[in-house]
Amino acid sequence: MRSLTRHTLFWPLLALALLLVVNVIATPSFFSIRIQDGHLYGSLIDILRNGAPTLLIALGMTLVIATRGIDLSVGAIVAIAGAVTCTYLAGSPDEGSVSRAIVAMSLAVGVCVLLGLWNGFLIAVLGIQPIIATLVLMTAGRGLAMLITDGQIITVNNALFKKVGAGFVLGLPVAILIAMAVFAVTAVLTRRTALGMLIESVGINPEASRLAGVRARTITWTVYVFVAFCAGIAGVMIASNTSAADANNAGLFIELDAILAVVIGGTSLAGGRFSLTGTLIGAMFIQTLATTIPTIGIPSETNYLFKAVVVILVCLLQSPKARAALSVRRQSPLLTKGSAA
């Protein structure tokens, strides 16, 4: 039992399971999945689909956080990705064509990769602290997205584009398939190659890694490009879901959800060891929470309040002092502070 509770994924899984139980009690049909027109529908499918953009970004964020970094600009990048896709499509003569959609989406993701290069340059080459460096794009990025869309919400009509966020393939939502594919690729890239170990070593001790010949700068740069790439896909997905680019609201606060998902999954903000599976569970937890709140009759505007509670719980669980208090074997005497002086 003790070794079970010590497993890194024990607490995230327990929390997710508890939430699911609450849902089943509130809506007994929660787990039911029905097939309609060959497509799967149900609450669980909804959670997975709506959680896909957060999961995508959280995957990239996991690697960034593992290197001791953080990326606050992902929400702005989401907005830019949507803006680029929709503006390009709306401005082209054949708005509905397949080839235009492919060009538009590739262009959007390409722009995001460039933005990731910019973040990585500030952090890995110029040595600016990640929180400051990405704050630049977090604030400027939304402005950039507004500039691209000219301040308008741009709606488009393109079947292929619409499919990315709202369509189905083989009965499953495309968004889920994309997120799972990125998850699988990331897992293979980090755990079947040496990339994961090198990222961790840079996160734990950058100078020792450099002296051991690890190209710490390249690795740092790469993870910021990767998270921007993920945010780009997520941005296309979010815009596709409504077939519209809303520079103001697309991906708003998604960076916080992504960071929260990573932390719930057991990856420490201090860098080092990371868990992609943990992040997957964390992202699902957050989305389930957002779904649960209206289900049990609480107005969904209070969502942030509940997230705050989760943050506090996670912080408590990760703090060494709280852990010690949980597994206390002896009553420790109160600290007599100042008696030494």
């Binding site: 190659t193 040496a194 170990m197 090198l198 070593s201 890694s209 051991a212």
Partner: peptide, 13 residues
Amino acid sequence: LALQASRGWLRPL
């Protein structure tokens, strides 16, 4: 670590 770093991440030991 040092050997792996010089092999590059694509060629895990």
